[in-house]
Computed example of a mutant assay.
Amino acid sequence: MEAKLNCEGVQVELMDWLAGTLPAAQHQAVEAHLTQCPGCQQELATVQALWTTMGELPVPATSEQMRPRFYSMLAEFQVEEQRKQRWSVSGLLERVREWWQPAYAVRLAYSLALLIVGLVAGYGLKGRPETSELAVQQPATTMPAATEDDVHQTNVLALLNNPSAVQRLRAVSYAEEVAPSNERVVAALLSTLNQDPNVNVRLASLEVLSGLSQDPMVRQGLVRSLPLQESPLVQSALADVMVRLQERRSVRPLRKLLQQDNLNEQVKDKIEQSIESLSDGQAPQPSTPSTYHETPPTTQPDLGSTVAA
């Protein structure tokens, strides 16, 4: 027996009725009501017009930087949430209880003793005039002036070792300008791709390295990185890069990945397609993003102020 709906119930179901997602019985009930109710027919016409208008809206083209920006924004949000939790009243009380233990008290006393000894020794050295005069008489050691590239390299390497994932994402973004002419930065990016604990940072590093594929060191490093990855997102992205570069040396490590017991099924399909493409020598096909059981780094922050500082 068909369920009868009133006007309010039918109007709530109109969008699902147009999309064809209602169960068969409910779909027939809505359709039967519409044939008899002028008011609901008018509401249906309005919803159909809105449906058509939304379908004609242009879809903006995706940017190459969309993924790193999204990951960076997500990382900043996570850091902000952690900061709020850390400074909550309950969080502060918990940190005080953890900190106030005998072991920490001993460390605090030891640190204070070292500080006092350092202050006393510094005051004693400052009171010896011959020490200052000797320092003035000795010529300063001539140090070579650091070039701009050296400064950039130092800043990038320092940020890549920062405990904050947001800072490491900034370093990866800034490394895109420095890496083409700096082997140490390239090596640091490869190390980040293989060892960084944050999936977002590893994906951002892969984005930068894929743009340096003309460098044999980068291509070999990407191939060697395949068996080291455990994240489905990174595995799939690396497979895409190997197909785009037509890097046939990656076929063997890709086959090894297929032997993993816990390999994601979607990643498995992606790798099999990649091996087939690389074996046949076909041109890479555009891939559609897949959803994995993993939270994927958002505007890429401007590193000018950070590096200048």
Rank of each mutant, 00 (worst) to 15 (best):
L50P: 01
S132F: 15
A45R: 15
E64S: 10
S88Q: 02
Q85S: 09
R69C: 08
D149Y: 01
L125H: 09
W51E: 11
L114V: 06
T142Q: 07
P68I: 11
E98Y: 09
E64Q: 05
G127H: 15
Q65V: 08
M54K: 12
G91C: 06
V79I: 12
V117E: 01
G118C: 00
E98S: 04
P58L: 10
P129C: 09
G91E: 01
Y104C: 08
A113C: 09
M66P: 03
S90K: 08
A75H: 10
L50D: 02
V106A: 14
E148T: 12
Q137V: 09
D150F: 02
T141P: 04
S72P: 02
R97I: 02
G55M: 05
L92M: 03
T53E: 13
A109Q: 13
W51R: 09
T141Q: 13
E64P: 03
S90H: 05
Q137E: 10
Q85C: 02
P139Q: 10
A109L: 15
L108G: 03
P68T: 06
V89E: 14
L74E: 13
V136Q: 06
E64F: 12
L119A: 07
Q48P: 06
E133T: 14
Q48R: 11
M73H: 11
L134A: 10
S63N: 05
G118S: 10
K84F: 08
W51L: 09
A145V: 11
D149L: 14
M66S: 06
W51C: 03
A105W: 13
Q101G: 01
S90T: 08
T131M: 11
P58G: 01
Q65M: 09
L57N: 09
T141V: 14
A49T: 03
A146G: 06
K84R: 14
A103I: 07
V47Q: 11
S63W: 07
A61G: 05
V136R: 13
A45E: 06
T131Q: 13
A103D: 08
V79T: 02
Q101R: 15
P58Y: 13
M143Y: 13
E64W: 10
T142Y: 07
P102T: 04
A121M: 08
V47E: 03
T147W: 11
Y110T: 07
A113V: 00
Y104Q: 15
E56L: 12
M143P: 02
Q101Y: 08
Q78S: 05
T46Q: 14
A140T: 14
Q48V: 11
I116C: 01
P129L: 13
L119W: 10
P60Y: 06
Q101F: 12
Y110Q: 14
E98W: 08
L115C: 00
A121Y: 02
S88N: 02
E56A: 01
R97G: 00
P139S: 03
L112P: 01
Q138W: 08
T131P: 00
L119T: 02
V89G: 00
L108C: 05
S111C: 06
T52N: 07
P102S: 00
G91P: 00
P68L: 12
T46C: 05
E98N: 09
E76V: 04
V136T: 02
M143I: 10
T147V: 04
Q101W: 10
